[in-house]
Every structure is written in C-alpha cells, then in structure tokens.
Design a protein around this nucleic acid. Structure first.
Lengths: 114, 114
DNA sequence: ACCGTTGTACGACGCACGTCGTACGAGCCT
DNA sequence: AGGCTCGTACGACGTGCGTCGTACAACGGT
C-alpha cells in the first residue's frame, strides 16, 4: 500500500509550526543529534527519554513542520534534516537553535528549566 | 513599596524558556513591534488581539524568559528588548525569529497555521 | 510460513497554557 | 480629595499537547 510520508512543500513551512516544534526539548534533541551525526538515522537510533509511541509523535511533528524528511527503508524510517528548505525560508533560525541546544547540552547549563 | 520587576540574570536565560516564549504568536507580535519601533514603548501602545489581563500575562512571560526588560514610569511600564544579553547567549536566535516574523507578517504568508 | 523488527493508529489521561472578567493597587492630574 | 489611567492578582475555564499502553501493519530474515 501507500507507505507515503507527507511532507509540506518548502513554501508551506510556517513559522508558527516551526517554532512550536522547536519548543519541545525532546524534538530539539532529535534535531541536534541529526545535525551532529550523518543523515539517514533511523528513529530507533535516537536515545530519547520517552516511549516508542511518543517518539513517533515527535518525529511526525518535526516532519509536518517541515524540519525533517523521512523515507522508508524496509521497516525502518530514515530521517534527515531539511536544512536547505528551512534555511531558505527562515535564515539562521534553525541553525542557531541547534547550536544553542548543543551548547546548552554540553554546558553545565546555568538553569535547566521545566 | 516594591514596584520591582524581577528579571532573570543574563546567564540564567534558558533556551527552553526562550523558545517557549517565542512559540506564541502574540508574543512574537510584541517582539516584532518592539524591534521595529524605538524602545520604551508602554504596554498600552501595542495593538494585541487579546484582553488586558492576557496582555499582562504575555509581557510577564517575555520578561521572565529574559527577552525584554520592563521598568516603571509612573503607572505605565516601558518595555525594551534585551537584545544584547540574548544575542550573547543564543547568537542569531531571536534576531532571526523577529526577522522571520516580520516577513511572514508583510508577506502574504503561504499558510497561516493554528 | 513464521517470527522479530520497526513504526503507526487509536484512545485515554493529566497538566500546562492561553484566555477572560472582575476586583484591586499605584501613581498622576485637576 | 477625587477620579482617571495603567497595569496586576486571582480565580476560572477550555483546549491543546505530551505522555503512555496496547493492538496492529509492513517488511525482512531464517
């Protein structure tokens, strides 16, 4: 059957959706790891402090916000950043968030929050 | 008496709080207008599609996230961006969001969202 | 053919957030 | 002193979101 993942067109990526997606720490973790490692990491490869279904949920939010692409490879799904599209639409936004996230992670991090 | 507004120290500004604050369109409207006009605009000067109490709430969130400073001037409160502090901590983040917000506003805006 | 792997669908639940109205406080002006 | 303006405090309410578990679907290997 289908096995089709719906991605928004580059022009349809909304600031609202992107910022809402970036607001969650789990999703930022995913993005940071995706930016750090090579592309095409399966969802399984991420160490997330949530259940499998929650994981699926977060990946879907990221995809529907236009931040990542997903494609099937057997039963697994390979994830990749949509760096080009997003940077073209919101220059500097996602990259600065990822950079900040990575630094906050390696840092002692003055205050953790939430 | 007090009349003291509590602001977080520059080092205590957390990525989580900043992104959570940026996730709301009303608060981005405030930031964009603050960036556009001069500093020291009173809360009243903002045309927001919400009630007065909700307005207060959003300004407080922005202040406690470390994105703006507020100081009393009579009964009014003057607002200003904390550009320096925030840019030092998360380079490029807020500026890119404000830029994107402004463009999305003047733009036709492909899709509105929410 | 079977089973394991990988991810999805579907409720369900609880909490946090955006929203509001009303009542109040603090300061200015006449 | 009195009234006006600007903002806050305090509930209250609805909804959306993050979370989970269970059941299921698609694909690959043995």
């Amino acid at each position: 059957m289908a096995r089709e993942l719906t991605h928004p067109a580059a022009a349809d990526v909304s600031l609202d959706a992107v910022l809402a997606a970036l607001a969650d720490p789990v999703r930022r973790t995913i993005l940071a790891q995706l930016a750090r490692g090579h592309d095409d990491q399966a969802c399984i490869a991420f160490e997330l402090p949530v259940s499998k279904s929650t994981s699926t949920h977060h990946f879907r939010v990221l995809r529907e916000a236009g931040l990542i692409t997903q494609r099937y490879e057997g039963t697994a799904i390979l994830n990749a950043l949509r760096t080009d599209d997003v940077e073209a639409r919101f220059p500097g936004l996602v990259s600065s968030v990822i950079e900040a996230e990575r630094r906050a992670r390696s840092d002692g991090g003055a205050s953790a929050a939430r």
